[in-house]
Design a protein around this nucleic acid. Sequence first.
RNA 1: GCGCCCGUAGCUCAGUUGGAUAGAGCGUCGGACUUCGAAUCCGCAGGCCGGGGGUUCAAAUCCCUCCGGGCGCGCCA
Length: 657
Amino acid sequence: MLRSWRKRLEQALISFVQQAYSLPLERVDFAVPPRIEFGDLSTPVAFDLAKPLRKAPRLIAEDIVNKLGPVEGIRRMEAAGGGYVNVFFDRGLFAYELYNNARRGAAGLVADAPWSGKTIVEHTNINPNKAAHIGHLRNAVIGDTFVRLLRYLGERVEVQNYIDNTGVQVADVVVGFLYLEKKSLAEVQAISGKFDYYCWDLYAKIAEFYAGEAANLALRSRTLRALEAGDNETTELADHISTRITQAHLATMARLGVTYELLPRESDILHLRFWEHAFKLLKERGAIIYAQEGPSAGCWVMRMPEGDEAAGDAEETEKIIVRSDGTVTYVGKDIAYQLWKLGLLGMDFYYRPFMRYPSGQRVWVTLATPCPGETPPSFGGAQRVYNVIDTRQAYLQKVVGQGLRALGFVGQADNSIHFSYERVALSSACAAELGYQTEADANPRATVDVSGRKGQGVKADDLIDKLLEKALTEVQARHDIEATEARRIANQIAVGALRYFLIKYARNSLIAFDFKEALSFEGETGPYLQYTVVRANNIFRKLYEAGDRSADQLTALTTAPLLNGFLEAAPDIWELVAMTARFSDMARLAVQTMEVSHVAKFAFALAQKFNLFYHRHRILSEPDPSRKLFLLAVADLLRTILTGGLELMGMEIPERM
RNA sequence: GCGCCCGUAGCUCAGUUGGAUAGAGCGUCGGACUUCGAAUCCGCAGGCCGGGGGUUCAAAUCCCUCCGGGCGCGCCA
């Protein structure tokens, strides 16, 4: 809605500049003034006109203010500072329209029509050979929040979680079971308890096993080849491991409200010969070549230009795509997968249902052979793909893009976007707490890497359990309610705290994980936001309990003149109202910049404003009925918008806190 | 060596396409619960935005350079 108001003003300014100065303007930029006294919108347009008009910006601004004439919804304008044009809305009219839109529900908030085509977001992508840890959670929560943002803006989104079930990491655990623990498939199947935790420990032992005897490392290559060939006992064991671990990952993510639609498996890319097809194309185009000599002799490699070629110091590095033992690296398989995602491969998977969420939503998994039963939805073939992968893989993503370009898919390569983010490391204190380093080693400024290979990290389920336990204590300290209800609320709080913690940092910022911060429920945290909405909801619950039904017809009773009277007299409340209008702008910005932390920062700022409002104005005991109506409308607007913000972040609103 | 990222208050971090007096949280200290629930609110203190140069009417933001830190450059992913 704010956008249409802005548009109206922009049009008026453009035609005025055309008329008065005979200058064509394509667009006018607007900003939110730093303080509410400066108005509701501000434009530096006079600064841009200063040069062509050879006139001081301040004078141009005054000219615009004096001569522009009336614009619907604009109460007044003024020239300010060195040449800003500050614009003041008709507060009543604005609030009235805003409130009526919001009351229509989510649809009232959505501003954009969907553009044609489908968007695939690929996230999580944990190697299915061990339990998920805190680093994986950051990926999944950022990815899931981004998906919610895209859907809010009206885009058609398909969520994929790639299962790398034929890679070295799975092979390592297979080797661990077969040769280190000497277990048969049946024995592995019989392992009870948390299988992902069991594999976490086993995987941590494998490096030592390889280092022990030279022959041990050959077992990895042998296992890897068996996995690619398929249809053997080794593959059966690997399938059991990766499927069981994938189930564990999906269960962990479901605890946080993160869901998927398709699990594309790497083994199917191989067995359906997606890779062979892509390999053929790459060879035909000369995108990859066979290395006769040098360190990569016997491998198929892609040449990557490096340095400034024009300057003549063009050095080339080689990226191995097919190993000398004939197996394919991750990059090779990813090129084939990207081609499929963008609908460029001309081949498709087979599918079967993998599991069903409590909501009824279904997750599908790819297959290499036809499967009778339900017809799957149409997967793949997207116009645009976001790959949520941490920044350390930027080089590999570049190689994959290079591969697509070499095949002639230049525009499509640009539409396959690396959604890059920094990793989570352990703070020094945290690493010491977990016994990964001694107090003496601890450098308070440094961090310790999370490493699945070393078995170092905070496991996702452990962290969620810890949050849950703390939340339960807090809930029980405040309310005397039955156990299941307390647990449900504690769960909502735990999830809110964790998701907010993982979203509030900009994606470029490395998170030094610290239990004290992650487990905090005060200040800039998820529970703070939830508490804010709970407070607002309580007002309406109390009202209802007292038999007051006026809230049911708030919009009918709340007229623009009534709103205007109060809003003109209360700049702090107007500031709160005006801020809620920026919700859609914020969502658009978050998608444009691929920065989900904007949602977090916006929601927090809004909650702060509301808590201040809540503190200053007592609503239920307000004696003036029309003022009470006004305050109720403000609280109602706020809780609607803030609830929408929390939904974007995957946070639920507890009944009480 | 080459490439990418970062450096803002004691600590952890925000800061829209360059815009008006650089903001939060935590921590410290001091206040506010007979009130719609204090998981809250208010106040105090705390900054050559790593250094230097440049572009601009305007730089924390863009360019150059130096210093300090992280990551990548595997027949792992």
